[in-house]
Design a protein around this nucleic acid. Sequence first.
RNA 1: GGCCCCGUCGUCUAGCGGCCUAGGACUCUGGCUUCUCAAGCCAGCUACGAGGGUUCGAAUCCCUUCGGGGCUACCA
Length: 486
Amino acid sequence: MPTNKEVRVRFAPSPTGDLHVGNIRTALFDWAYARHTGGKFIFRIEDTDRERVTDEYIAAALDTLRWLGLQWDEGPEVGGPFGPYMQSQRLDIYAEWAQKFLDQGDAYYCYCSSEELEARREAQRAANVAPGYDGKCRNLSPEELAAFLAEGRKPVVRMRMPDGHTTFTDLIRGEVSFDHNFVPDFVLVRGDGSPLYTLAVAVDDVMMKITHVLRGEDLLSSTPRQIRVYQAMGLSEAEYPEFAHLPFVMGQDNAKLSKRNGEVSIAWYRDAGYLPEAICNYLALLGWSPGDDREDVSREEIAQLFTVERVHSSPARFDMKKLEAINGDKIRALDLEDFLARVLPFLKRDDVVTGTEAELSVVRQALPLIQERIATLAEVTQMVKFLFVEDFVVDVDSAPKIADEQSQSVLKAALVALETLSDWSHEAIEAALRATLIEGLGLKPRIAFGGVRIAITGSHISPPLFESMELLGRERSLARIKASIA
RNA sequence: GGCCCCGUCGUCUAGCGGCCUAGGACUCUGGCUUCUCAAGCCAGCUACGAGGGUUCGAAUCCCUUCGGGGCUACCA
């Protein structure tokens, strides 16, 4: 156990697409652990697979982490003493180590073709033997070697797994052991000379002095290979990083989270109006808990309370309903100016406002009315749109509801009551409508105000009616009621 | 198939041998409040996968079993 060493944790995604919920949960835990221990949070991009990782995805990953407020101490853009932090810029380092392993006899060239390997694996499966590399090229005779070279074969570099087993202590799962009979010799360098994850990840973790590897449990069974590379690099067991394999975040149907069983891309949640602090709060609760019954935690509190000991070993299902509930809570907790700032990009995006002072003033007055009525920021549009539209029309679904005789007579009565009203405050409007419709016509409030609401806001769901009318103003309110009378 | 990981309400979880007739949150249901929708408040439904042990005592420890997942690549 490294005790007085500074803790260094890395988040090292391979951006083959938009960062998804699972990536971010890992990033959050990495970040929280680093912050909790007063250590460093390192962000590294694993882009050795250049077929699948693109610059756009890398840029999006940086943006997403920043948006979530997971500030990294070392990594792309900020640099650091152990850079570069993009694996594609460290190719020479991996090549050097591979050569060293070759020289030491820890690794060897393997000339087997993909087709040959596949055929042999098939045979192993058929014979019910553990599939994996059979060690054919471990000790090639000079004649065999010469024959392969004459064929012009491009060899891969393969790590030699000695007999025995690898045992390590996972901070979350306890002692885990793998028999090397089930950990075949693995490839370090491709035929074209490019490194594989297994080589790059181990080399980088050592060279970047990573002390704790918190990552997804899908990497658990690759840990013996990673440890094998440490050994070849000359590390003693005490120098290995600690491992903690985080449980998966899964979809509702217990399958890996995917497009089919819930939205995965963090970008989607951002566009839908989820707050970064809500996402962090919710994700923190997936596989971890503070221990008491507390569920409302800020990023800072997560950092303060987070310990690996409290991380679960069992997978968690992602529940959008719960995220939504937390998001609603976080929205309600926003102060007015903050709320306005968050909501404005959505109003502009949806062409509700352009951002003039006059518009902002109205929005500012409307926000307190809707703050407890929305669960995501994007919903703000449908709630306040009626205050800004030039050519107002009632929703097609709601229009028929005010076309009947009773509704029409209510609207007419309301119009009469309001036309003579001099004070256009919501109190006065309410008093006038109550006097006329409730007391005068003996209607139930629900019936009385329902029609007016539709005429004014265009929908049967809206912010409180009288405040809405006050905000809309006398002219437009009366015009809308008139327009709805056939 | 083999190796490895995992198993408390529908979901996230508390629980680390007695405080558990199993607590909280989300969801759902019913009610209150109410100008709609929300929010808020109150109430309710529902769980230790199964079977064996160990123990005075087990959700908690052990074994088996069943179920779920991961890995088994010149992906990560």
